[in-house]
């Protein structure tokens, strides 16, 4: 199988980038897209060129480190999937595949396809936790949590922090990411004592990082590899209002 990659190359954050085309042969449809990029990189090394820098780690859809725009869609042509789970069988022989980094002011490009998503860590830092020191926990079954509640918390907690929601949003909003963490913790009884402070501080940090506002297009939930529902954002907004009124 043969494809033409059109890939964003940019040496670092200070210089301008641009697309470059690479013809790659000797591929097969069982290869993942990232394996095809590995293959391209080996050829580049042998041609004495610098490799394409792109992110990956687990290559099984859970670490959240990979993530690029493929033919204009976050994580490629399928809904609810990570880039590493995308295989060449989704493309035809001879296709041109355009690959570019996440585009968002809050995610500056570091090199080629790699962006800086540390803004997400700083949102978590502002309250995406339960303040409980090691050694202070009560017996696990002492506080019952109904299955529906635990399932709802888990649905939100499944977020892998890849940033596709931001990248695909026309406003570059991080509302889905932030809402998922707030709702995960605020749904559980263990998260209640800090619920108001959590939602206020995390939302404030989200705004300070330069993410845009949510205008409820629902684009994020389509690309979210975990299928986290946009309803989470409405829930976060309600929690935010409550925190401002009663917090």
């Amino acid at each position: 199988m043969r494809v033409r990659f059109r890939i964003w190359r940019q040496d670092n954050a200070r210089v301008k980038g641009g697309f470059r085309d690479y013809e790659v042969d000797g591929l097969n449809e069982d290869m993942s897209l990232l394996e095809a990029l590995d293959h391209l990189n080996e050829q580049l090394v042998l041609r004495d060129e610098k490799v394409v820098a792109f992110e990956y780690d687990c290559r099984e859809g859970i670490c959240g480190q990979c993530g690029v725009f493929v033919n204009g869609r976050a994580h490629g042509p399928h809904a609810n999937m990570t880039t590493c789970q995308l295989h060449l069988r989704s493309f035809a022989d001879g296709d041109t595949i355009t690959i570019e980094p996440w585009r968002a002011a809050a995610f500056p490009v570091i090199k080629d396809l790699i962006v800086d998503r540390s803004a997400f860590d700083r949102i978590i830092r502002q309250g995406g936790y339960i303040s409980a020191k090691t050694g202070t926990a009560p017996e696990a079954n002492a506080i019952p949590v109904g299955k529906e509640v635990a399932d709802r918390a888990m649905d939100a907690a499944a977020c892998i922090g890849c940033g596709a929601c931001v990248a695909t949003c026309k406003n570059s909003s991080a509302a889905l990411f932030t809402a998922a963490k707030i709702n995960h913790l605020n749904t559980l009884p263990q998260g209640k004592p800090e619920q108001h402070r959590r939602v206020s501080d995390m939302v404030q940090q989200m705004e300070e990082e330069g993410f845009g506002h949510c205008s409820f297009t629902g684009a994020c939930e389509v690309e979210c590899p975990e299928g986290i529902s946009v309803a989470n954002i409405a829930e976060m907004n309600a929690r935010y209002l409550k925190a401002k009124l009663f917090g």
């Binding site: 926990a137 635990a150 913790l185 263990q190």
Partner: peptide, 18 residues
Amino acid sequence: DHFTQQGVPFAREYGGVL
């Protein structure tokens, strides 16, 4: 106990126990 307190959404029975 520790992870439950930290908000890990472990699987639960309908009655609320782990």
